[in-house]
Amino acid sequence: MAMSAAGKRRAVTGLLVAPAAAWLVVFLVLPFIAIVVFSLGERAPEGGYQPALTLAQYMNLPARAAAFWNTLVLAPIGALACLVVAYPVAYYLAVKADPRWRLLLVSLVVVPFWTSLLVRTYAWMYILGSRGIPNLLTLVGIEDVRLLNTPFAVLVGIVYGYLPLMIMPIYVSLEKLDRRLLEASADLGARPVSTFLGVTLPLSMPGVMTGVALVTILLLGEYLIPQLLGGGKVFFIGNALVDLFLQSRNWPFGSAIAVTLVLVVVVVLLGAMRLAYRVAGTRQVDLV
């Protein structure tokens, strides 16, 4: 049977896309459908899932309001704190650093990824714990400072753990920035601060947006940092899920929380993308 040129092209495209599509269906779409189905069910008496068709689990969401609240507040704040620390670093690396050292410096940013976040977060447990900074503070007369198991500790852990993920996209967009635009800005009478605010910052917005979206999304599912540095006092949705699936074995309720989380992520992502498009004014936004 003869195939038209357009038909052939479509067949080729289909073949190219097929492996990725199959992967997505098997490992993403099917599990997600399962989760949605679970979320509409009931907890079996002995734990796990029992078929039903009810929104009861969703009605029950307020019971975990604290986890949602912590996550939805600390994730964006953490991402922004990350941004505040990351931008100057990325700026230095991309603009100010001697090109000869640049590669080395950039790899130094990535090196911490080579050891497990678990180990590194344990280190922070020690630093923030009673034998760490609070201990040093007593030496100068400041007593009874609690750092560990506070939102602050979680925030410190977040900034520390996610910094490279924020630095890299910002670095890339600053690195690509055409230096002649900065000269043009100066030529037109803009002082360095105006040039930064009028040219550098807007043109690095795609990187900023990518970084913020990336870190926020990953933070929404964070489990380890609140567990270790929040000590059960500052817990995220991730901790709630571990609790529901592994401890109380309330799968339908856990599923309902997971589905709600996915919806939140989608909204955050779309919002961030739109903002990035609008600010950058270009068609392309690199998601690195």
């Binding site: 800005s185 030529d187 807007p202 043109l203």
Partner: peptide
């Protein structure tokens, strides 16, 4: 004297127009 204090303006070779404006 830095560029932003000089009474001259430049048309750059590849124009260097601001893409975000």
């Amino acid at each position: 004297v830095p560029p932003y204090r000089r009474p001259v303006n430049m048309v750059f070779q590849h124009y260097a127009l601001f893409p975000h404006l």
